[in-house]
Design a protein around this nucleic acid. Structure first.
Length: 99
DNA sequence: GCTGAGCGT
């Protein structure tokens, strides 16, 4: 099943590829991206990972607290912000959120 | 060259 994960407490050196390489061992990573500051471009220290797993809680237990680049990362299910009227599942490509 | 709670253009 597919799951959207929130990954926090990341080291500044962690990037999208580091994330994907790490979660690749726990499931089929569809997209992994570290959120950088929109203004300065520097890392915000957290990111999001969409992957396909058989057991979500098992992956979270295995990844949450795991040390990556010397820092224990925090993994949880990402909140679904959807939209003002609720989630839209029909025409959402993932790049249509409000500013 | 720096920082450290938090949910993304």
């Amino acid at each position: 099943m597919q799951v959207k994960l929130f990954v926090g407490n990341l080291a500044w050196s962690i990037d999208d590829q580091k994330l994907e390489s790490f979660f690749r061992a726990h499931g089929n990573v569809q997209s992994a991206r570290v959120i950088h500051d929109r203004d300065t471009g520097r890392s915000r220290g957290f990111g999001f990972v969409e992957m396909d797993v058989n057991d979500v809680s098992a992956v979270i237990r295995a990844t949450d607290g795991a040390e990556v680049d010397g820092r224990p990362i925090r993994v949880n299910e990402a909140e679904d912000k959807g939209g003002p009227r609720g989630p839209r599942r029909d025409r959402d490509d993932g790049y249509s959120r409000r500013y």
